[in-house]
Write a protein that binds this DNA or RNA. Structure first.
Lengths: 346, 346
DNA sequence: CTGTTAGCGCCTTCAA
DNA sequence: TTGAAGGCGCTAACAG
């Protein structure tokens, strides 16, 4: 291995001089700088990042952690896109990404703390947030630099989120506009902030359109196609009437489609369906599915930029910026009634 | 920050003694060991991984690199699953994963070399392999520990792959069995080994079923739904007749479905379609699509295990093991003809 | 502008 | 079984 000493020897200078040209210091004569650079090239020298990290006590690497139950759709393209976004800015700003996929929230929490205490990463980007989130508590308490993709329901933290309330409100309103009377909210885990926010938007639309809302209209489903399917079956068995579904994820919406199919309801005539995330294949599903398009790539970009910015400008660390990204309702056949331009209400 | 010295002081021993209990040395009295452990707990001490890495000259982190053109489907759930697999064994064996998504093959290559020369990672897992792959050349030449997810067309290297030849052969045979006469191969970039392997399997089946094959039957498409669609349109314009398509990826297969739709061919009656990767939503596409299921998660597992094994047992580094995982054809409606149990041939 | 010195936090001989 | 000393490769005062 070629070290800074080898370069120093070859350029006939001291190691610190070499260190200076690496750092791009200007307190150096052009002449020796050139000599050192030549030596570095001839020796094919690349500074050891580990030694650097130890000396400077930071690593230029960011940890990204996800908690995914094995079966749950980590396949969700959402995460791939977020990662691509993060990667783009990391690359540009010369940072690295340490990835940790964890089987449970507990293990994620432990992993996060460990990455920080081991000093492997300078900061963290974490994703799913619960209403009462122990990970966020711990991170905040220990003053660890991190940004949340999502929103914190409690203390203010750095976060990047899409406007779930607004998006759910728009999507629900769209269904009402199409003439659907009884829209059900089909959400995932109630403890997740994202579920609550989408539910809030749904309720808001109900209120604005003066539709009755009670607890029975908000279903909680296991996060899968099957889960969505079963939740609707149960709802029906419990005698809940509905002619449309706002699902908090495409998987659940697909479950609704399956429900319609097995129960012989026609979509969109007898059942309107709207999903969340706009998975790429949705236009091939029959009928093509309406869904809220989330700016996942941009979410990744913003999160990484925000984190690195606070890392490099500790002054800003105080202000808990919360970035909100817009989303867009992509209307397809699953929620458009032939004669449904019923713009009653409001 | 609490260091090994703090622990030493509190336990009234020397730092080297603390170091020994961290390493789990047995040349230590139970008594002092306990005392040290207690001190570590009381101080909430976690060894600094960077300092450790420097002293031991390895990092216990593995680099995983992908080259993805921005638009191309990194969204492909394949990678998420591979990552999940890698993560599972990394977690279990106490390794970390450094993720690098690169815009191009060149940048991927540079990033790989850099990660290694900077000593940020102990080894690499790389994914896409080309027929004449400069990345693999470079890695092999510099004796860098790495495993390839895929197959190297040239020099033998450690690799984990699914049996593409066999899978394509089976899928093609399935189409012939269903009575299709003219099956087209719809592949992605010709320079990719995976494309060549799937094409080889396709040819093999053609040969076994005594069907004519010439170059015009193997289409090269841009890797997207649109790309698959256009490739088939062009084929038709060039006067190539076909009644079935074996696509080397689900996206391309979806393009075939789109082609059928716009050209008013009925699937599967007039056009049979088979894809690769069995993306989760495929059963909701209309008609449900036949596809080859790849063991992506297992691919990730095997790759990580193989790499760590060679890292920790340098003796094995010589033998270039190649692991081959089976895949499975998931038959759905897009390739099953009503009266198509035509088991002619062979 | 450049070299010397002293760490960063941990590991690893070598003695005792 | 334990401690002292030196080193991993680089950075950062402090002199000069």
């Amino acid at each position: 291995m070629v070290t800074i000493k080898d370069v120093a020897r070859r350029a006939a200078v001291s190691p610190s001089t070499v260190s200076r040209v690496i750092a791009g210091s200007n307190r150096i004569s052009l002449q020796t700088k050139l000599r050192v650079q030549q030596a570095m090239e001839e020796l094919n020298y690349v500074p050891n990042a580990i030694a650097r990290s130890l000396a400077r006590s930071h690593t230029r690497t960011i940890g990204f952690t996800v908690a995914r139950q094995a079966d749950e759709a980590f396949a969700n393209p959402f995460f791939s896109e977020v990662m691509r976004g993060m990667s783009t800015v990391a690359q540009a700003l010369d940072y690295n990404i340490l990835l940790s996929i964890n089987p449970s929230a507990e293990e994620e929490r432990e992993k996060c703390m460990r990455l920080i205490k081991e000093r492997r990463v300078d900061g963290l980007i974490v994703s799913t947030s619960r209403m009462k989130d122990r990970l966020i508590d711990a991170l905040a308490e220990e003053q660890i630099p991190f940004v949340l993709i999502g929103r914190s329901a409690e203390k203010p933290v750095l976060s990047v989120n899409n406007d779930n309330v607004q998006a759910a409100r728009t999507a629900t309103a769209h269904l009402f506009e199409q003439g659907y009377e009884r829209v059900l909210f089909l959400g995932g885990d109630r403890r997740l902030v994202v579920t609550q926010d989408r539910l809030a938007g749904y309720k808001q639309a109900c209120y604005e359109w003066q539709r009755a809302y009670d607890e029975s209209h908000a279903l909680e489903a296991e996060f899968s196609i099957e889960g969505g399917y079963r939740a609707l079956l149960e709802a029906k068995e419990r005698g809940i009437a509905f002619d449309a579904v706002l699902a908090a994820d495409d998987l659940l919406a697909l479950g609704a489609l399956k429900y319609a199919e097995t129960s012989h309801y026609r979509v969109p005539e007898q059942l309107g369906v709207v999903g969340f995330n706009d998975s790429p294949l949705l236009s091939f599903v029959r009928p093509p599915m309406t869904s809220v398009r989330i700016l996942a790539y941009e979410l990744g970009i913003e999160a990484m930029e925000l984190l690195i910015d606070t890392l490099e400008n500790p002054a800003k660390a105080g202000m808990k910026k919360e970035i909100l990204l817009p989303s867009e309702l992509i209307v397809r056949a699953s929620s458009v009634r032939s004669g449904g331009e019923n713009t009653a209400g409001r």
